[in-house]
């Protein structure tokens, strides 16, 4: 239990160990630990950011899908309208065409009947003239009575 030079030896070795620790041990270790802490913190932050980004992207995708659906529905609606309008239009056209055909046919019929009537009239007049001629063959010359026959024919 004597105090002796051991105490000095201990002081010296302690100083050397502290110096050594300060120079070669502590900075390397604490530096690596700090760096790792930073890396881990960065990693966690990146993961958080990725989760947020994913959520954002999902929301966007849902929005886009909804928009596309609406657009598609609008296009279909439009097409339907267009189709029905086309059908309606062609129906109208057909009806018009039909009407036109009817009108022209009627006009032709009218014309034909007029023509027939005219013909008939001339033939009747000729017939009547022939009849009258036969009756009046001897007394009446054809030239003298032509105006009367024409007037009769016009009255028919």
């Amino acid at each position: 239990m004597n105090i002796n030079a051991t105490i000095l030896g201990q002081v010296i070795s302690f100083s050397i160990f502290v110096w050594f620790c300060m120079k070669f041990v502590w900075p390397a270790l604490i530096g690596a630990m700090e760096e790792r802490k930073k890396t881990i913190a960065d990693g966690l932050e990146a993961a958080d950011r990725a989760v947020r980004d994913l959520e954002l992207a999902q929301n966007k995708a849902v929005d886009q899908l909804k928009e596309a659906k609406q657009e598609a529905a609008a296009i279909i609606e439009d097409a339907k309208k267009r189709a029905s309008s086309i059908v309606e239009e062609s129906k109208d056209k057909a009806r018009e065409e039909g009407d036109r055909l009817i009108v022209s046919a009627q006009a032709e019929i009218e014309q034909e009947s007029n023509k027939a009537r005219e013909e008939l009239r001339t033939q009747v007049a000729a017939l009547a003239l022939a009849g009258a001629e036969k009756i009046l063959e001897r007394s009446i010359s054809e030239e003298d009575n032509r105006d009367i026959v024409d007037g009769l024919a016009a009255q028919l």
Binding site: N2, I3, N4, A5, T6, G9, Q10, S13, F17, F20, C21, F24, V25, W26, A28, L29
Partner: peptide
């Protein structure tokens, strides 16, 4: 005063060196 406790000082020095050696290797 001018004497050295070889045993305790020796062990203390050896332990300190082991400590420094291990920690320095890791560092």
């Amino acid at each position: 005063f001018w004497a050295l406790n070889v045993d305790t000082f020796g062990f203390s020095l050896a332990l300190g060196m082991i400590f420094m050696f291990v920690f320095h290797r890791v560092a």
